[in-house]
Amino acid sequence: MTTILGIETSCDETAAAVVIDGTDVRSNVIASQVELHSKYGGVVPEIASRAHIERLDAVIEEAMAKAGIGLGDVEAIAVTNRPGLAGALLIGVTAAKTLSWVLGKPLIAVDHIHAHAHSPAIGLDAPPWPAIALIVSGGHTSLYRVDAPHAIERIGSTLDDAAGEAFDKVATILNLPYPGGPQIERIAKRGDPSAIGFPRTMLGRDSLDFSFSGIKTAVMYHVHGQGKTEGGLEKLTSADVADVAAGFQAAVIDVLVRKTLRAVGRTGLCTVVLGGGVAANMTLRKALEDACTHRHLTFHAAETAYCTDNAAMIAALAYHQLARGETAGLDLDAYASSGKAARGTTRG
């Protein structure tokens, strides 16, 4: 039995979790900063870093208390060290290194996106691999081929905006509060998804990459007028706004589903998993599930608790890394991007 404390501070959630053997989540504490960033319409890195340093130790204590154990019972410390906001990541990374040193326990460095790709496996009786993983969030929209927790290969990603980012930007166009994703989904329920035919950008026939800037621009011109960047919203009725939200959401989901099925066709795999913050969107979950069912594919979506940024997924994936002896040194750094070329992206 291996008890791992996970720590996650890559963006605007301060999170800690205790997970046993990679699947048994004993606690999953998330201190959201949404209220700090909402008035700016997006995450402000310096405000995120300030909140992380103020909150992290209390979040860790709460995670320990909810799991009913003490820090002395922890057998390893896992932390997100890439990708994310460099200054925010460093707070979690520094805290994890210090805990590793003081407690004399191994340190495990986890890739945030790999943890999202692995998150649908949490709580399953049997691992779902191999599978195609669609990860959709405010910062990422990617397709992965996951053969095992340690064999995660990216096969497609967004060339411009992430899907969640497009949701936030369209919410801003429609003058909806931040964060925009849940607001779009709420309003779209009252709209007709086929009333406005927003473009589906599929790129090349073989491409597994995504592009959402075209849809965002189409919404902008639809609302403001061709070539304009403001005004026009006052001319729309609430039913019109609902149709815009529904049409936009349908276009994004359509692209996500079709690209995922394209990846299935390319690889011949029979399982699809869904994770990331936008995976909390019930319309997306249902659309992808229906498409998979129709094609006799197995489908697993991450539990909503593991969709938004969280530390349970960090500790869960870390269990497999620890089993393979993949531990990090106390000189562990944080990186804004996942690539090996990311060296030097942090300062401090």
């Binding site: 870093s49 340093i53 130790d57 200054g87 460093l90 707070i91 520094t94 805290a95 805990l99």
Partner: peptide
């Protein structure tokens, strides 16, 4: 924040 993070975790 790096220095203070270390201090707070030791505490």
């Amino acid at each position: 924040r790096i220095g203070i993070s270390v201090a707070r975790m030791i505490a």
